[in-house]
């Protein structure tokens, strides 16, 4: 028992510190991806509801592709595609340096594109819940469209979209584990390395899954609090559940 505890301790031979660093990288990737993915998702949602056929068509194709393709495949295509693309661009400019795509950036782009596709559905649902009359009232008050969106629509859809976005966040948090296969040093990466060194796979992957589980539970509690806060003054039926 002492042996196993020393393996996951913060001591000189323990894997506590690497796991902590990995946890920090996992969280950083998820937090860095979130604003990018959600903003792009909102843009896709607005295109989905646009009057222009081209914008609607683009939004439909985008969500179909990024919701249907496996995240691992998307990650590989972004990682190798950007690596090879930048490499050949550099070559055509006369540079012969080796270019390695940073795994963090590749993960952020790939997971952000996928998050955008899934969150756009949530945004569309929330946008549909805003009565048309509000927009007309805003126009009658002389607000122009950007102002109406920023001052009237957005604060309301944030509240409606929050549970769905919470789900998106939980999925994102778990999906970051995939980026370990392109050598991002996250929790999974250190668990795999610890497995190779200590030959204790059950312990190491067990610890890794408990860290993820802790993140998930903390997130669930956090979103519960946020939802309760944002539903203040709306305690009709939704909040009672």
């Amino acid at each position: 028992m002492d042996y196993y505890l020393s393996l996951i301790s913060f001591g000189p031979h323990g894997w506590g510190r690497p796991f902590l660093e990995g946890a920090f990288v996992t969280l950083s990737l998820a937090v860095a991806t979130l604003p990018f993915g959600l903003t792009l998702g909102l843009a896709i949602a607005l295109m989905q509801r646009s009057h222009r056929r081209f914008a609607r068509g683009f939004a439909t194709v985008y969500t179909t592709v990024f919701r249907g393709a496996p995240e691992l495949l998307t990650l590989y295509i972004i990682y190798f595609g950007l690596s090879l693309g930048v490499q050949s661009a550099l070559k055509s400019l006369g540079f012969s340096t080796q270019f390695d795509m940073p795994p963090f950036l590749a993960g952020m782009i790939a997971l952000g594109l996928v998050l955008a596709a899934f969150s756009s559905e949530v945004w569309v649902g929330a946008l549909n819940a805003i009565p048309r009359g509000q927009r007309e009232a805003a126009a009658a008050l002389g607000l122009h469209r950007a102002q109406a969106f920023r001052l009237i629509v957005f604060p309301q859809i944030m509240r409606i979209a929050l549970p769905g976005l919470g789900n998106n966040w939980m999925v994102l948090l778990k999906e970051t584990s995939l980026v370990s296969v392109i050598t991002l040093p996250d929790i999974m990466f250190y668990a795999m390395r610890a497995n190779v060194v200590t030959k204790e796979p059950f312990l190491m992957f067990g610890v890794a899954s408990l860290i993820y589980l802790a993140f998930s539970i903390i997130s669930a509690v956090g979103f519960g609090v946020l939802e309760a806060r944002s539903n203040r003054g709306h305690a009709m039926h939704g909040a009672a559940r």
Partner: peptide, 19 residues
């Protein structure tokens, strides 16, 4: 539902496989 599937797969393939 709270842990990544990748982690669960490794826990079974490498973890349980080690016994």
């Amino acid at each position: 539902r709270g842990t990544p599937l990748l982690c669960q797969l490794f826990l079974i393939y490498y973890g349980l496989g080690s016994f």
